[in-house]
């Protein structure tokens, strides 16, 4: 497992039905591109988060493929419309097979 990986998410706790809310996500990750060499000249193997998804009550909100050019600690900010109370689930897929998830509940009044 890559070191010091920690997902962070900010979602408002409450919103009105039909509101557009702003969601911010950040995961600390080295995002090693696979194109660098270490001090002995050996290639450092690629190790990145290659996919990020967000679902709301099981429905896909966002599904992103990520490539090696994306810098360290990838940060996503996006807007979403919330029709009802429910749960956002965020998932990051690591090259080494690890999957990191984070969930946030939101109450719609």
């Amino acid at each position: 497992m890559a070191e010091n990986v920690k997902p962070r998410v900010r979602v408002p706790r409450e919103a009105a039905a039909g509101d557009t809310i702003t969601i911010k996500t950040l995961i600390s990750h080295n995002m090693e591109s696979g194109q660098r060499k270490d001090s002995d000249g050996n290639p450092i193997p690629r190790s990145i988060i290659n996919r990020f998804t967000c679902t709301f009550n099981g429905e896909t909100v966002l599904d992103v493929m990520m490539e090696p050019a994306i810098s360290t600690n990838p940060f996503f900010e996006f807007d979403a419309v919330v029709p009802e109370s429910g749960t956002f689930e965020f998932t990051w897929y690591d090259d080494d097979g690890d999957v990191y998830t984070e969930t946030k509940d939101i109450t719609v009044s």
């Binding site: 010091n4 920690k6 962070r8 900010r10 911010k24 950040l26 600390s28 600690n73 940060f75």
Partner: peptide, 12 residues
């Protein structure tokens, strides 16, 4: 603080 990339290291 959420936007400040330095806060990752504060957490560490």
């Amino acid at each position: 603080d959420f936007d400040n990339p330095g806060m990752i290291f504060v957490d560490q």
